[in-house]
Amino acid sequence: MQFVIYLTFATLSLAMILIFIRLILGPTLPDRVVALELLASVIVAMIGAYAIYTDTASFIDVAIVAALTAFLAAIGFARFLERGGPRDD
């Protein structure tokens, strides 16, 4: 069982590294927004895996709050991009 948890942490860590690369090198703003949303999802998965690893149910509440915050941020970014993105005026 612990091997699976360690493998999950390693896979999620690798995913975070690749997401950070996309976040930095993303050629457009929508690419960076998608990378941020994916990063938030991976962080929620890490918190969930840690909750299973430590057998502590209160971390599930933290994961839910992080997921809701990421969802609201994604809606805010989508509205920002829908209205035309950054302006120069």
Rank of each mutant, 00 (worst) to 15 (best):
Y50S: 07
E82N: 09
F77A: 09
L25R: 13
I17D: 02
D61M: 10
S13Q: 07
L18R: 07
S58L: 14
F9R: 05
L39E: 03
T8N: 06
T11W: 07
T69R: 05
M46Q: 07
F71W: 11
F71M: 10
L81F: 08
F77R: 04
A66Y: 09
F9L: 11
A10D: 09
L68N: 03
V33L: 03
T54D: 10
R32F: 02
T8W: 01
T28I: 06
V34D: 01
E82H: 13
G76M: 10
V34H: 04
V65S: 06
Y53S: 08
A45W: 00
S41N: 09
A78C: 06
F77M: 04
F9C: 06
I19L: 15
I52T: 11
R22D: 01
R79D: 02
T69Y: 14
T69C: 15
Y53G: 01
T8M: 09
V62W: 02
V33T: 08
F80Q: 07
A10F: 14
M46C: 10
Y53W: 15
M46F: 08
G26Y: 07
A49C: 06
M46V: 10
V44N: 04
G26S: 05
A67H: 12
A45K: 00
M46N: 09
I75M: 09
L18V: 12
R32T: 04
M16P: 09
F59Q: 11
D31C: 08
M46R: 01
D55C: 06
A35L: 08
L7F: 09
D31M: 08
D31V: 09
L29G: 03
G76N: 04
I43H: 00
L14P: 10
A66E: 14
A66L: 09
I21E: 05
S58Q: 13
T28R: 07
L29Y: 03
L72Y: 12
V62I: 15
A57Q: 15
P30L: 00
E37G: 00
A15G: 13
F9S: 02
G76S: 13
L14W: 08
L7W: 07
L23G: 03
F20K: 03
I64T: 13
G76Y: 10
T56L: 12
L72D: 10
L39K: 01
G48R: 02
F59L: 15
I19W: 06
L81H: 02
L81I: 11
L81Q: 03
A51L: 11
A35C: 06
A63P: 13
Y6N: 12
A57I: 14
Y6M: 09
T69Q: 06
M46P: 04
A78R: 08
T11R: 02
V62D: 03
D61K: 12
L18N: 08
S58K: 13
A78T: 13
A74F: 13
A40I: 14
